[in-house]
């Protein structure tokens, strides 16, 4: 075990875990930030997406030792502004069903829209294809993304 210091949602946090511990489990088990979800552990499903230095990354596939000193934003951090346009659109269009994948969907989209105000259809598809939803909310995510891009 070793101590690692990371910046999460603007605050410095220290966790005492093995260096190979995925960031996902450090966030969930050590820091109690359970908004970031475990879905596959292999970087396939995107439920665990957080922002590392503003980029969308899969927290299940990156070790705590590799994020030391970096700035991490989780869904809880994004939700510090509940009026973020993504949240408002998500509520307007009632996108969520079971809700489990939604933090990953939202964090992935937030990073994309942060980087590019008007991403192309192809860029949207390539990015959002990386977050799986079993309830099938894709149809409404699509509508939400279109609305957000149009309003940007």
């Amino acid at each position: 075990m070793a101590k690692f210091t990371i910046t999460v949602n603007g605050k410095k946090k220290t966790v005492d875990v093995d260096g190979d511990t995925p960031l996902l489990w450090a966030l969930r088990d050590s820091l109690g930030l359970t908004g970031t979800k475990y879905g596959c552990g292999e970087g396939i499903c995107g439920a665990c997406v957080v922002h590392i230095n503003k980029k969308a990354e899969r927290s299940c596939s990156i070790s705590i030792k590799d994020v030391e000193g970096k700035s991490i934003t989780t869904i809880e951090g994004l939700a510090e502004n509940p009026n973020h346009p993504i949240f408002k659109t998500w509520i307007d269009l009632e996108v969520s069903q079971c809700g489990y994948c939604q933090p990953g969907q939202i964090m992935t989209l937030a990073a994309l829209l942060n980087e590019k105000k008007k991403p192309s259809k192809k860029e949207i598809e390539e990015t959002m294809n990386g977050v799986l939803c079993r309830c099938g909310t894709y149809h409404r995510i699509h509508k939400a993304v279109d609305k957000l891009v149009e309003e940007n």
Partner: peptide, 11 residues
Amino acid sequence: RLDTPDKIYGK
């Protein structure tokens, strides 16, 4: 839906 806000805020 009553459950939407908490779900999307990660709560």
